[in-house]
Design a binder for these strands. Structure first.
Lengths: 245, 245
DNA sequence: TGGACAAATCTTGCATACAAGACTGGAAAG
DNA sequence: CTTTCCAGTCTTGTATGCAAGATTTGTCCA
């Protein structure tokens, strides 16, 4: 994503910037979104920031605590289950009804898988998180239904927040292999098989969550006080979103 | 729905009022939503009206034409196909994974079907439109996934707009029988059959659309100048939403 | 009579101002 | 030393004001 502070304050760029920050895991669930700070950051008035927040709230991506502030959503364990349930249903149906892949589709998917491989090799976890979610959105794009694409885009954003809250361990390789299997099935002209694999894939990912643990209210404090293990990476994306409530 | 002009200006009541008006077909696609009029109607300032519009825009229920105004969405024929495609996928998956009906669920569904019958008998088309959409939302509620319920709520609202734009003839009885069949299959403990019936039902409804005809830009003017055939009904719901652009 | 131009009006886009609730820090009392 | 209360500060909630673009209406000219 481009540098926020220099980007022109185009319409809906605020929404996009925040969603992008979530999709690439540069912004944590529960992070405070201060209206004034965002306004100065985007060189607009609070009015437009608030409008963006309203839109994002309608998409369950941020929540408002009255007279206290806006926060990136922190899906509950129950909500997490529902989001995965919804994804299973949507992606199953999507893949099952998938038309035969065009040459361009195949190339795009292979390109994507290649990027996943590179991110794994480089150990670039932020990029990986982004790619892992994007894979499913690309499938929706190929399926050619923009309505479901929008639905999946929001579900993916929420999924990433869920991962950040509950993921005990991230089996990047396993997920990548799941994606490969889905692509292979699609190429073989077996959408039913691809759909079944998608369910299996989502099951595996959900399996990797620890939905019993309550979100740690001290998480961001803990992170801040710990020696910065990924200093090189995180300093690259110096987002001014504060995580401290 | 309660009378708009006397309802307290609670939070998000504006959103709900407009969505309700759409769900009960008391407001036409393409209808202008004047900020000032809505503000005075709800006894609030334009600020809150605009916030509501932003939320509804994020849900594809209203659109904004820059510096011209807000309008209830007029889904294109292509969008209509995508909405139905999305509904097929979501509802198929939803019903397929439906748990066994509890006694309360059964009662609620039968109650709903009974209301449909009454509306048909009474020839109350507005109420029928509302009930026809509500049936599918209730299924999502029984399925117990609030995420998909929200998705279906918005898809239903868009479906109603589509019907108002493209429906050549409304086979109320056919739709009702489709609903009955679905309920019967669910009661028989055959969610797969219910899912298949839902697809068939949606196919039938989409079949009843004439997606070739372009929306008539003079439709509302035409309506206004024609002798009011349903004067008794439409005068009951004297919504101040203007349909004239 | 028809068309083009221009003024007037209306409506939204955006910023700003003020009010009200929530939080913080410190002082005072037990 | 702990707890409670209160003032100060910060942040959001809401209204309002002004500017800019769009539409409409009325007039003038060919």
């Amino acid at each position: 994503m481009q540098d926020l502070s220099t980007s022109p304050p185009q319409l809906q760029s605020i929404d996009k910037a925040i969603v992008d920050a979530i999709l690439s895991a540069r912004i944590q669930p529960g992070a405070r979104l201060n209206e004034n700070q965002l306004a100065t950051l985007f060189s607009v008035s609070r009015t437009r920031v608030r409008e963006a927040m309203m839109r994002l709230e309608a998409r369950c991506i941020v929540t408002v605590s009255p007279r206290r502030g806006w926060f990136v959503a922190e899906p509950s364990a129950e909500e997490a289950r529902h989001v995965y349930g919804a994804r299973r249903i949507v992606e199953y149906g999507l893949l099952r009804s998938m038309p035969a892949l065009s040459e361009a589709d195949r190339a795009a998917l292979h390109q994507h898988l290649e990027e996943e491989r590179q991110a794994i090799a480089a150990g670039d976890r932020q990029r990986l998180t982004c790619l892992m979610g994007d894979f499913h959105i690309r499938l929706a794009e190929i399926a050619g239904n923009p309505v479901l694409r929008e639905v999946l885009r929001d579900l993916t954003a929420r999924t990433i927040l869920i991962s950040l809250l509950y993921q005990s361990e991230f089996h990047a390789l396993q997920s990548h292999e799941g994606h490969c299997a889905i692509v292979t099935a699609l190429e073989a002209g077996e959408p039913e098989a691809a759909a079944a694999l998608a369910i299996q894939h989502l099951d595996e990912v959900e399996e990797g969550l620890d939905l019993t643990r309550r979100p740690d209210p001290l998480a961001d404090l803990r992170r801040s006080l710990q020696p910065d293990l990924e200093a090189g990476l995180s300093s690259l994306s110096s987002m001014p979103f504060t995580n401290h409530r």
